[in-house]
Design a binder for these strands. Structure first.
Lengths: 333, 333
DNA sequence: GTGAAAGCGCTAACAC
DNA sequence: GTGTTAGCGCTTTCAC
């Protein structure tokens, strides 16, 4: 591999001049010309590893999240990569599958690589493992107060779900949560929903489902819930369901259809996330849409600030507004 | 940041011994103990940038693909990351949005960073831009003969689609392709389908749709196709549709339902890809499923071989078998 | 503005 | 085995 020294020799200038040229500093025009030619002739490519070592810098950012194989995470990853790229960072993708040991491994790796920063969507308290002074920004979880947090406004999402169902003549309500996690996000969604119901005299019940990772148990529980709903022929009319996730909403939707319950005429469903299969295609579930791009934009902006030590004092908590997304599972009004 | 020299000093041994310890070479037991303690005490973390510079090595792999925001690509990315991680590589995620300039930028970056290798899903002839001797493995496209290629067996996928539709009493057939690309993958899917039809005396027609990126034109064309299908009340009975993508199949499915055409009783649809929304959830479209995990496993294995110069001679073309995935859009048999 | 030289943190060769 | 040392490719003084 040819290096700067070779280029300097070929161009008949000194090492320093080549470096200066590469870093866009003032250079004698004729020297510049000769250096340019030398670079082309020798197919020289600057070695960034050496540069980073010398400057003690890095343009890598580690992005840790459970998986990318979900509409929400794949969209988030898309925007995070775009934003990082825009700032000149390179994204190292780290998928933890929610395993703490994996997450720890990624953080250790980040330190060994002397990366510029870490962006994480962790449901454990990953951040407690970050010893060094690597800037970190957390998405959705981990409100330890030590690192900036970027999140959707989950509480207001719950309120909006309740309000939209009410607007559409639902007169009884059902919240479906998870029995396996008690994340702050889920709790906030539930609280928003429940509080709104209470404030407005709306009758509600609460149900829970296991993780979709335990597919069998999950399916059984979905069936059980739908059993209860379908139990009495008239009971379920005007039922409004809010599930803490589009994934659950979708399963519910399919099972209700299978029982010939009419959606949205008889039962309405609102999910959470606002899944889009791709940039051009959204799912048919009505949902509370997370501002995924905004989350990414803010996370990267916060990270960049900290990398450049612009704001090391304040630890912002950024809550982004969510919106109602009309799909096929709620009435049109 | 503390470095190896500090550790050596603290432990009362030489630089080289610390390096040897870190690289798991033989060391005097008591020295080992002292080094261990020194590392802990000083919170020493090895600087991999320096190491890479010295050894002229790297554990980064650049993964270039159009987007991650699609069920297929998100699944592929998931497995690629898992596999790379398994081999000890770190994945640099590069999303090109099919823009050649972006792809070129990523390759340049890869060279500057002296990465170990590149894995690419490129629909342009990216590889022609790779001057250096960085190992590259191509997925799905780019059969230049210069780099290993890993791909689904698209041709046989087309055949299988035709066969499965025939098995289910379809007696006329429709292939839906793209009017905006003429990728080898799409062409192969079509050829497989058409050849099978011809061999078996099956009547077929061919239609085309624009890119879903041009949503309006796309929707119009889908409507037009469905118009034609619905045109005559009896014409469409026992129609079997094979679309080159799940995405298109899904749009078609929705539009046909809107016209009250019964699926799968009257019209059957087979897509391509076998989209799973997530590890636990698949779409309801019947489809030709790509062996996504296998693709990733093989791509990374090939890359690793080339990184280790095990096989620099042969340039393998690996075709992986696809399978039929029964969903709700074909009859059960 | 330019060239010479020091040194970022590490590995690998070498003599002991 | 261990300590010493050269040097990976670059940036950054510092005199000139």
């Amino acid at each position: 591999m040819t290096n700067m020294k070779d280029v300097a020799q070929e161009a008949g200038v000194s090492l320093g001049s080549v470096s200066n040229y590469l870093n866009e500093k003032k250079i004698r025009p004729d020297a510049e010309e000769r250096i340019k030619n030398a670079i082309k002739k020798l197919h020289y490519v600057r070695n960034n590893a050496a540069r980073d070592l010398r400057t003690n810098g890095s343009s890598y950012v580690v992005f840790v999240l459970p998986t990318v194989w979900t509409p929400y995470f794949s969209e988030l990853t898309f925007w995070i990569q775009k934003e990082l790229d825009h700032y000149g960072y390179k994204a190292i993708l780290c998928l933890s599958e929610n395993e703490y040991e994996q997450e720890k491994g990624f953080v250790d790796m980040a330190e060994e690589q002397r990366v510029a920063g870490i962006i994480s969507v962790s449901y454990s308290n990953l951040t407690s493992h970050v010893h060094s002074d690597i800037p970190l920004v957390s998405i959705e979880k981990e409100d330890t107060g030590l690192f900036p947090l970027v999140s959707s406004d989950n509480y207001s999402g719950g309120e909006i779900a309740a309000a939209e169902l009410k607007k559409r003549q639902a007169d009884k309500f059902l919240f479906i949560g998870a029995d396996h996690i008690s994340s702050t996000a889920m709790t906030a969604r539930k609280s928003g929903f429940v509080d709104y119901c209470n404030r407005n005299g709306m009758k509600y019940t609460i149900d829970k489902v296991p993780s979709t990772h335990h597919q069998e148990e999950f399916d059984i529980q979905i069936k059980k819930i739908v059993d209860n709903i379908a139990g009495s022929k008239y009971q379920y009319r005007n039922l409004g369901i809010f599930s803490y996730t589009d994934e659950v909403a979708l399963s519910l939707y399919k099972e209700l259809l299978r029982r010939n319950i009419k959606i949205p005429e008889e039962v309405q469903i609102v999910g959470f996330d606002g899944w889009k299969l791709s940039q051009d295609q959204q799912l048919s579930i009505s949902s509370i849409r997370q501002p995924v791009k905004d989350i990414a934009v803010n996370a990267v902006k916060q990270l960049d600030k900290r990398v450049n030590r612009e704001s090391t004092q304040d630890v912002p908590r950024i809550m982004l507004p969510v919106t109602f997304l009309q799909g096929d599972t709620t009435k049109t009004i």
